[in-house]
Design a protein around this nucleic acid. Sequence first.
DNA 1: AGTCAACTTGCAACCGAGTTGCATGATAAA
DNA 2: TTTATCATGCAACTCGGTTGCAAGTTGACT
Lengths: 138, 138
Amino acid sequence: MSPTTEALILSRGRATPARVRVLDCLLRATSALTHGELEERLARDGTLDRVTLYRVLDWLVEQGLAHKISGEDRVWRFNAVGREEHGHAHFRCTRCGQVFCLDDLRPSFALALPPGYVFGSAELTIRGLCPACNTPRV
Amino acid sequence: MSPTTEALILSRGRATPARVRVLDCLLRATSALTHGELEERLARDGTLDRVTLYRVLDWLVEQGLAHKISGEDRVWRFNAVGREEHGHAHFRCTRCGQVFCLDDLRPSFALALPPGYVFGSAELTIRGLCPACNTPRV
DNA sequence: AGTCAACTTGCAACCGAGTTGCATGATAAA
DNA sequence: TTTATCATGCAACTCGGTTGCAAGTTGACT
């Protein structure tokens, strides 16, 4: 049994082919993927309905197996998430638009909210150049 | 001459009625406004075309007079911006969905990006309850 | 003033990510 | 094997935002 399937079963859900395929694809990715990117990659081995993909992604997020990231281009990006959820930072490349999770970069900002505000969670997004776009082409 | 008009002229642009009205509305607001909210408020004193409002907002952002905030609901929010642009944090209320700018909260996170990544800018979004939603109704 | 180029506005049509409704297919429990 | 529940696919829809274009304004320059 693949780790992907295992993770799905562990989360008390049905390990349907669609869910296995999507989670597998997310686990293999090096950056957060959009719905469109996933659709494209999944199309290589058989078709998968647009709506089903949306629903599988929602389900994965609901189960805590994937992470939904809101970007500046009004497009959701998804990435597989490990066992525990921890507030990590996101890196958005301003050149290629890809979004990477920076697991190691935990924001340690001074938490001095104005009076009346109640802290819930924080999300730090850093913009800049990713390694691929940073490296000059020859 | 109103401060709004003055700011518009200072930015070497035409202080058209539409622009004055929109910027004025943004300056008056206590939280970042969506296009829809602006449309609603502006409708009280005369009509303003949807598209024109979009273009005015884009223009204001371009001139550095307004700030465009991307949210988790795939809706742009705008707020007037002072003279200088500084990386302030955003506060999103998880109950009412409003977005506030926390001018005083400047993130001072340890900047240790993985090798290869080039820092550009950072944006910190804090989720929680705003003062209005925090205060229990009687 | 009169002319002309550049800019602004409004309307309509469009785009695209994401959603909803519903019928059909698969699955698991009884 | 029957039945209730959940998953999938298709089509149509929603909605924030954009684009093209014609008409109206504005400002600068004779």
